[in-house]
Design a protein around this nucleic acid. Structure first.
Length: 516
DNA sequence: CGCCGGAAGTTTGTTAAAGT
DNA sequence: ACTTTAACAAACTTCCGGCG
């Protein structure tokens, strides 16, 4: 259990680096300074580029102008997609995406109605099917399917509002945004068409029938141009489900939907649907979001990544998300006090801390309620705030959010998060403090941070606040937090806390990168 | 100078929660 | 229900010093 923090630090970083360089031999240090995100790249020097060892080709991305419009666009809320697939029409745009190679060369352009073909209908179609691991040893498997339909209906509704003609709209959704939804919808409909048997719930509970009926509405002209296959698919599915009377004589949640296994999507529905004489562009192989097996040592029910899953985006990025199967097991973080955690508790990622209720935000540093106080904060070793914070371990000056960007020399930016800290100070409510390793291995950084991952360091009290000035001459609020006595921290001292993560935890952390 | 490689800085994409 | 916010993660770009 006992290890020297210094050594840990070095080790963790080295390991990290090695991995990193493996992935991108030229130069890439993951660093995240993102305050000025969204601004268009001003200097795209392609001049020097030729000297450099061929960098990875860039997707011939949008024109600058397009990006500009996009920046003001809100982030699309892509909830856990049921399945993720390349849309045929976008194939050319993502030549480099790993999945693109799966695309058939005769992919149907989106601007054409999908041909109704017979060939390659029955053979090696990779069905879109969220491969719910058959062994997660729990009862939630079935609900995944239900969730999927629910999710799909929501997204379909969203797409509809996006696409319909509406002159009252203040902001036109960006083309990219729409495309993405179309993509999800295509995946969703293929899933409905091929992979799932209708159930009464689909209609009664999720109103899938109404949702699919959107294709009849007059105000979706734009969609007809962009993705006519969706309309066709919707029509087909409706007819199909109607014909099957929405599975009305299905005994409740039989296993038919769940019998997928890890070995891949398989053609679970070689029954009636696969045999229907026509098929749309659906013969495109699709990618599947695979959820971790319950028995996995790292990602399984007992592993440090339990509750999370990962997927690869179309650009080949690996991202973490909360495993939908365990949404109901996510612990509420809006609780004062330890919330059942012992100081020294450690998680590999902030999202894991989120799942376990240690902190209430996937990324933001403060969670609190302006009327009640702050539940928890995350101090990151490498965030942009690091220069504004002063962290001595048991004593900490923590800067409010937006402290870095504020350029107003007179008025600090006061967000609800800031207010919650003010409230915590007034009321003396305890704040859970978590320290995050951040993503870089700056050797100069303080050794009091965990080497990797995020650690619960205990309850602190907000004892003071004052104003500081940042390099933009803007003022910001900063709060002094002092660690409560060990007796209030389950007897765990600050020194003890720093032993984590242990060597074993670091090892496991490294393994999280291997996926499942 | 040309090249290399590490470090530092920038841009983009992303998910989930809060806000309206 | 939909939009906005937040800041992480990774890819990408630039900077810089050492070397032949």
């Amino acid at each position: 259990m006992k290890e020297q923090p210094e050594q840990n630090h070095k080790l963790g970083c080295d390991l990290h680096k090695r991995k990193h360089s493996l992935l991108s031999p030229t130069s890439s240090r993951g660093k995240m300074i993102s305050k000025n995100r969204g601004r268009t790249g001003t200097k795209n020097s392609s001049v020097k580029q030729k000297i450099r060892p061929a960098p990875k080709l860039k997707v011939p991305s949008e024109a600058v102008g397009a990006r500009l419009t996009n920046t003001s666009a809100p982030q699309v809320q892509t909830r856990v997609p049921v399945v993720d697939m390349e849309s045929p029409g976008e194939a050319s745009g993502h030549v480099l995406a790993p999945r693109a190679s799966n695309l058939p060369s005769n992919a149907t352009p989106t601007h054409l109605p999908s041909p109704v073909t017979d060939n390659d209908t029955n053979q090696d179609i990779e069905m879109t099917q969220p491969t719910v691991d058959a062994t997660p040893a729990d009862e939630n498997s079935a609900s995944v399917w239900a969730d999927s339909v629910e999710q799909g209906v929501k997204q379909l509704a969203r797409l509809y509002t996006m696409i319909k003609t509406d002159e009252k709209r203040t902001r036109e959704p960006s083309e990219k945004e729409v495309k993405r939804y179309i993509k999800y919808m295509r995946a969703f409909m293929l899933f409905l068409k091929h992979d799932v048997e209708p159930k009464p719930d689909f209609k009664d509970k999720y109103s899938l029938d109404k949702a699919l009926g959107f294709y009849l509405r007059p105000d979706i002209e734009p969609l007809k141009k962009v993705a006519p296959d969706l309309l066709l698919l919707a029509k087909e599915i409706l007819e199909q489900y109607d014909a099957e009377e929405w599975g009305k004589d299905f005994a409740d949640d039989g296993e038919e939907g769940i019998e997928t296994d890890d070995l891949g999507p398989a053609i679970a529905t070689s029954s009636k649907k696969g045999k229907q004489s026509h098929d749309t562009s659906s013969s495109d192989p699709t990618e599947v979001v695979r959820l971790p097996p319950g028995s996995h040592p790292i990602w399984g029910l007992e592993g440090i990544m339990h509750g999370l899953a990962r997927k690869t985006t179309e650009k080949g990025r690996t991202v973490l998300f909360l495993d939908p199967r365990y949404h109901n097991k996510k612990r509420n973080a809006k609780v004062f006090g330890h919330n059942d955690h012992t100081p020294g508790a450690w998680w590999p990622y902030q999202k894991a801390a989120l799942f376990h209720g240690a902190h209430g935000a996937p990324q933001a540093g403060i969670t609190g309620n302006p009327n009640l106080g702050t539940y928890s904060i995350v101090v990151s070793a490498t965030s942009v705030y690091r220069h504004l914070n002063e962290d001595k371990g048991t004593e900490l000056w923590y800067s409010a959010d937006k402290s870095v960007e504020n350029a107003d020399p007179l008025n600090p930016k006061i967000s609800n998060a800031t207010r919650s800290l003010e409230k915590a100070r007034k009321e003396g409510t305890p704040v859970r403090v978590l320290r995050h390793a951040g993503t870089t291995c700056d050797p100069r950084r303080s050794p009091i941070y965990p080497t990797v991952g995020i650690r619960y360091d205990g309850l602190y009290e907000v004892v003071a606040q004052k104003l500081g000035t940042n390099k933009n001459n803007g003022v910001f609020k900063r709060f002094k937090l002092v660690r409560l006595p060990d007796s209030m921290n389950a007897g765990v001292s600050w020194e003890e806390v720093q032993r984590y993560p242990t060597r074993e935890q670091r090892r496991q952390f490294d393994h999280t990168k291997d996926g499942y």
